[in-house]
Amino acid sequence: MPASTAADFSSLPYDVLIKIAASFDHPNLLSASLVCWSWCEALQPLREAMLLLQWGKRFKHGRGGVRQNAEKALESFLKAAARGSALAMVDAGLMYWGKGERDKAVGLYIKAAELGNHAAQCNLALSYLQAKPPNTEQALKWLYKASFGGNVRSQYQLALCLHRSVGVRSNMKEAVAKWYLKAAEGGYVRAMYNISLCYSFGEGLALSRQQARKWMKRAADRGHRKAQFEHGLALFSEGDMMKAVVYLELATRAGETGAAHIKNLVLNRLSAASRDHAMSLADSWRPLPSS
């Protein structure tokens, strides 16, 4: 049974509190700071880090009246990281990665990943996959962690990694489809496209044209150009020329060269008025939000 002595949580060690709040955004950090006086004291470094992080982003993107300055951005991120912010570790890691200083980037990703930051876990995993030779075991370890934590980008990368590393072993196909589906349901567009393919070939789950079509449309509506092409072809074969031409036009505009030929075929069969209407639909199209 638990100890009978009631623990005093106002005196939680500062380092433990900083670990708890390391990936909190500003509202959550402020909430935690307002719990009691000693929490407020303990989280002071993280509140400073939040400010430094914002300054770092201004320097990185050149906004908020600040001129773009990569050096100063990195400096701000590193100062924030030193105060325990996992968010800043990820940003500093990204900047090092961009500069080609991969070891420094990985060091920061490891720290933030151990603090439970899902973005860091995903970046760390990808860096293990890109290493020479790739360290698939370590990559999978972190991808699983972030995926179970609900990170959609990691779920997609995990499915991809399993897909590549296991090849055709059929018992893993289900795991691949499961993670694609999870990521797709979480709003990750590339996973929507891939789960659509899984459904249409019955890979890892029961073949379903209806589900395949549904996910292909969802990916297309969120701007996936291959999905726009595929969905346009599906509409074409169903005889819905108006809608087909809009998706094919969108795919063409996005750079899917294969879509142009069939789009022109359809356009030639439409009246001038329909053609204009289709083009104005394509002009006013905006992708649905995705994660």
Partner: peptide, 9 residues
């Protein structure tokens, strides 16, 4: 420590 901190977070 990390597991507990993440869980509480």
């Amino acid at each position: 420590v990390d597991l507990m901190a993440n869980t509480v977070a």
